[in-house]
């Protein structure tokens, strides 16, 4: 349990998706104009991460890894399908996003009105695929740790996008040099936020 909490906290602050790995920057820059929409996108990302990363973990462990097919027959112990992981992961993500969209549309129209427009965007958000690939690379021990990692990364992303959106709302009233307006200043502020987040380096529970 302590290990899971450790991974959770670490993936929010230390290995933050945006400030340490720059994943999901495209939608981060495009959708962070107001706090409300960025909150919507952030929640959608947490949601999709929580579903796809553990699912991909199961697929990786029981289908793709070297020796993962032993449960079918011991003869398959040397088969290594991990070169297929990119295409399988992206297919799982695209399919899950579609399913989640349909599910949310049927069950909760209110939530759909808030998340709906963001869900298709998420299929091609690098944070989602990135989380699955990191999960594969870091070799977590069990599904609990993977879920902790997925939740933590999602919340870290949410934190970052809501933070920058709040700053950008205030920024509208300040005098930024014309060539730096919009994109340029957003980059520099993100850089400064990343420096702030660096102070969490070495945190251990």
């Amino acid at each position: 349990m302590q290990e899971i909490i450790n991974i959770f906290v670490k993936s929010i602050f230390v290995d933050n998706m945006i400030f340490a790995f720059f994943l999901g920057m495209c939608s981060y820059l495009a959708v962070s104009k107001t706090v409300k929409t960025s909150m919507g996108l952030g929640i959608a990302v947490v949601f999709v991460l929580l579903i796809t990363v553990p699912l991909n973990y199961i697929i990786d462990n029981y289908l793709l890894k070297e020796g993962a097919l032993v449960w079918i027959s011991p003869k398959f112990a040397t088969i290594d399908l991990s070169y297929l992981s990119f295409i399988i992961f992206i297919a799982v993500i695209a399919a899950m996003v579609q399913l989640v969209e349909m599910f949310v549309e049927k069950t909760s129209p209110v939530l759909y009105a808030q998340l709906g427009i963001f869900l298709p965007l998420i299929a091609v958000n690098c944070a989602i695929l990135g989380a699955s690939l990191f999960m594969q690379e870091r070799q977590y021990n069990n599904i609990g740790e993977v879920t902790g990692f997925a939740l933590g990364s999602g919340i870290g992303w949410l934190l970052a996008i809501v933070g920058i959106a709040a700053i950008r709302e205030k920024l509208r009233y300040s005098q930024v040099p014309a060539p730096l307006k919009g994109l340029g200043i957003t980059f520099i502020i993100t850089g400064l936020m990343a420096i702030a987040f660096m102070s969490f380096l070495g945190i251990k529970l």
Binding site: L180, G184, F187, I188, G191, A194, M198
Partner: peptide, 10 residues
């Protein structure tokens, strides 16, 4: 990482 962001900004 942060410096990459600031350099792109520049």
């Amino acid at each position: 990482p942060p410096m990459a962001l600031i350099l792109v900004g520049i």
